[in-house]
Amino acid sequence: MTTATLSTQKPGGGLKRLVERHPFLPALLIALVLLALNGLYQPRSVSFIGITGLTKTYLALMMLAIAQTYVVYAGDIDLSVGAIVSLVNVVIVVLMEKMGGSGFSVVVALGVGLLTGLACGIVNGIVVAALRLQAIVATFATSIFFTGLALYVMPVAGTPAPAAFWRTYGGRFFEVPFVFYAVVVLAIVLYVLARTRLATQLLAVGDDAQAAFQSGLPVTKIRIQGYALCGLFAALAAFCITGDTASGDPLVGGKMTLFSVAAVVLGGSALSGGFGTVVGSIIGALIIGLINSLVFFVGTPSEWQNLVQGLAILVALMAGVLVGRRARA
């Protein structure tokens, strides 16, 4: 797909070349094994309803992992994605409530939500790329700012989202759950995005910013666009989480930031930039979800669940890095 190492043909086995061209394959393998294990311990988890539930719960993290991927492409990082999710979540919930919760209000709120995410992303891009602050600390600072904004919009959690919103997200059309339509639309959008110039340019900047600059690419503008795209997908993640929790919470996204980074790494993308796939990040998010549910299905005592999840994610992270590097080497 969109790997940066397109030109260099290296000698090696067919399997190696396959992984090199599709760096998400190891992650896919891990995800399939986890899925099988899930099915082994809880047959219902791989049923239609089980998969629907999993998608419904983890679509938000998938969106956020996608968001993070576009910044990581360019060798940047965004530690404010969780705060953007929180901000968009409270903005749309408050707007929908103020406008009466009709279908029209939902559409308006979603539009405003997308613009909010876009604005946050552009702010991040300007701070990191134009003002040249260090991405880790600068996006942490903006995350504090965005959290403040979210607390201003909704000081305490609990305002419910209108029924029209979450009934749609959790509902079915023609016997097919809504989230699957969302996944199909998402797949088309991602396919188109992967073919745009921007995706290639982001990877080029991440691979070697100096070389990209010298070959005439507007590096600063491209990095800002990457952050803007990240903000948009963070807004989509907020829509999903609002559909799933059916309420507003000014701190709902906070914990998701580091998981989004983990999902990107699990998917085989390099944090140093220039190498990665969006598909991998989606699978990475899925792996986190599957690990969480497997730990539950295996019957781990509740107080041990977080530790086992943490260990499993650490091991998977290591595997992702090691396999990814082998594919590139």
Partner: peptide, 22 residues
């Protein structure tokens, strides 16, 4: 293992948070 420090210590943070619960 040459894991990037950000990834390694992020994973370790997850483990420690789990350990705290236990």
């Amino acid at each position: 293992l040459r894991i990037p420090p950000l990834v390694m210590t992020l994973g370790m943070l997850g483990v420690l948070q789990g350990l705290l619960v236990v």
